[in-house]
Amino acid sequence: MAVPVIEVDRVRKVYRLGEVEVEALKDVSLAIGTGEFVAVMGASGSGKSTLMNILGCLDRPTEGAYRLDGKDVKELDKDALARIRRKKIGFVFQSYNLIPRMDAQENVELPMVYDGIAAAARRAHALDALRAVGLQERSHHLPSQLSGGQQQRVAIARAIVNTPSLLLADEPTGNLDTASSDEIMGIFQGLNDERGITIVLVTHEPDIARFAKRVLRFRDGQLIQDEPVADRVIYGKGRKT
């Protein structure tokens, strides 16, 4: 296994909902190496979203350690976490989460705006990223003028524009039809193969998980299964049945 990008070491996460304590993650340990493509599966409430929030530095574990590129995030303050999100992590969400007033290119530029990159360089990088997802022709379309699949491709361009070491996708195909879903997964595979970007993808569709190389299954806050994908689907080579 390659150098681990992600090391989760006996992580517990507890939420308080009023009086009730909810244990979303119970003693989870796992490691994900550079260049891996991992699908995280589980029913809702299994703790997979909580894991994603922790992996994405949006949340911190209650107990245990999370090391990203060998660095424990527990010691970092909010600004440092924001910096990590900006530099090392790209997010793709189920509902795309593009800013509606801004066109495709501006949405892609957003992470660079907070990095203080000059406008000309931002535009060049944004166009590169849009080209990588095949949307360079639509750079001045607003999200409302794009189809769901296209919006998700803009979101992927935004996620990769800062050349992150980790791409986190939370049910990225949840709102898409099969054809668009496959297209999106093809893009992920391309990014994983050609750029070596580590991808962690949450899904509850077995068909989607088969695009990945490794599957983690969660139930009730615990990792119950960790295995490589046996019958992997490669986009463009047709689906195996």
């Binding site: 600004d79 999100r85 989460n97 593009l98 800013i99 907070y114």
Partner: peptide, 11 residues
Amino acid sequence: GIRMAVGAREK
């Protein structure tokens, strides 16, 4: 939330 997720600081 989106802005924060892509790396905006509180500031």
